[in-house]
Nucleic acid binder design. Structure first.
Lengths: 193, 193
DNA sequence: CGCGACGTTGATTTGCCTCAACGATTGTGG
DNA sequence: CCACAATCGTTGAGGCAAATCAACGTCGCG
């Protein structure tokens, strides 16, 4: 069976025919560090599976500051979910930037929806993925409400050590919601303990 | 057809047989203001559909402070999603409190999963619900990163005017991540403009 | 009426931001 | 392979939004 299908669906058992059908909807694309998968105010139709590399999605606020919504590494999906999943169809609000040379598999939302309908296993897989994401979103909101910047940083580095290595500190800062200067001071404080 | 099934699934077309099957898994329960659906450190197995009334889920941090994760009114589902959807099965981390006399319909997660499998429409309905929730979670994270407490309050009241009426100010404060004192000052400032 | 829950106000503190300058590191062209 | 520039990270001084601590109105209900 196709190795990328096997990778994406992990321990879900997929038949040869199903694999072929899914594969026919995937389009491989590669991206180099610094390139963009998406910029704000574009049409969004696709989901992207990250096979290798590292990306981040972020928005730029009215004052021109960046705020990182999500990092994505091997095994993760990334897109502009606000635009793609929102109640009304809108243009993209996020930028998606490649932080480390990446190989992606793209699938359009309509194709993906159809796969979920035609192959129930895919639908169930998707539901499970969404549920996990749901739980971790709640966790992130909770951490934002509950913890100090220092503790959020420690948690981030603990939970995602590989991402912490792959990305710049100011990317992490903009994910945690602090300035690079503050993060620098936090790191200094931690290293001296 | 059963009116509650019709209400829950809105514009999804459900047959009589399907309706009966779904209904057989639902258990009605009512809750009075001040009562709890769930407290921390309990088993969590169920999802709750809110037919009438108003509830909130919140966690209590190490310092004893409350942080509201979610409000739920008619048409919403509520549970301890961190416990119910997380990677590993854990006891509840949240409290779910009734803020306004409520009528709920409870369904166990296993039953709900089975319904999603046996009735594809239900699965697709669930996916769509999750996608919408996904988008609004991203939005909330974004607002937390981007906006001032004042602006977040204005957005909350604008987006959920009925909830804002049904709940105490300190519930809203703990949802926005500010103290009641700060929210009070914010409200004062707004009223004078 | 009186008590408890809720909301407001004031004084002070603090965590993080802003602005500015300066090291350190990385990458690129000569 | 070095030189230099750009990018990234650190440090300092000062400011501000929101937290903390404390006290006091106000409302609803037994």
């Amino acid at each position: 069976m196709n190795t990328i299908i096997k990778e994406i669906f992990q321990d879900t058992v997929i038949t040869e025919d199903e694999s072929d059908l899914i594969y026919s909807k995937l389009k491989q694309s590669s991206l180099n560090k610094g390139e963009f998968l998406l910029k704000a105010n574009e049409e969004v139709d696709d989901l992207f599976y990250v096979h290798t590399g590292c990306l981040r999605s972020y928005i730029i606020d009215l004052e021109g500051k960046e705020h990182t919504l999500q990092f994505a590494v091997k095994g993760w999906w990334i897109s502009d979910y606000i635009a793609l999943y929102g109640r009304k169809k809108i243009k993209s609000v996020s930028h998606i930037e490649c932080l480390k040379d990446a190989i992606l598999y793209r699938v359009s939302k309509p194709d993906f929806d159809k796969l979920c309908r035609d192959i129930p296993k895919v639908g169930h897989f998707h539901i499970r993925k969404m549920e996990l994401a749901f739980a971790s979103f709640q966790n992130r909101i909770l951490e934002n409400l509950t913890l100090s910047a220092k503790q959020r940083y420690i948690n981030f580095v603990t939970a995602y050590p590989t991402i912490a290595n792959d990305v710049k500190n100011y990317h992490i800062a903009s994910y945690l919601g602090v300035t690079t200067e503050s993060l620098s001071r936090i790191r200094k404080e931690i290293s001296s303990t």
